[in-house]
């Protein structure tokens, strides 16, 4: 079986891609992609770390079930905000949405 460090590596690479997307992209939907990728990186990390103990810790899987559910909610709320913003401003480029900035 693959050593756990390979899974961690995939997780970190996903995190890196997510951070890269967050910094360089300005489309709200694309930023949501990046956030979801970071979520997945974290989930993978948790599941892999849960296997570090013998016997494995089942808490890791429970936690990931929760985070997946949470991510789905976050996506639902985030996407409805995006729809609303696009209707109000005809624009979802975050760098141009500065109405809330004081």
């Amino acid at each position: 079986m693959e050593p756990l460090s390979s899974f961690f590596a995939v997780s970190v690479i996903l995190l890196g891609i997510g951070i890269y997307g967050l910094t360089t992209k300005r489309n709200a939907i694309r930023i949501l992609f990046s956030v979801e990728l970071i979520y997945n990186a974290a989930n993978l990390n948790i599941i892999a770390f849960a296997r570090l103990r013998s016997p494995p810790l089942v808490t890791g899987q429970v936690l990931v079930l929760f985070t997946i559910a949470l991510a789905a909610m976050e996506a639902a709320v985030g996407l409805s905000i995006i729809i609303l913003v696009s209707r109000l401003n005809a624009e979802i480029d975050l760098s141009k949405l500065s109405k809330l900035k004081g």
Binding site: E2, P3, L4, L52, S54, P55, P56, V58
Partner: peptide
């Protein structure tokens, strides 16, 4: 990091 032990009932 060691490779994970086989899971068993865990």
């Amino acid at each position: 990091f060691p490779g994970p032990d086989s899971c068993g009932s865990g």
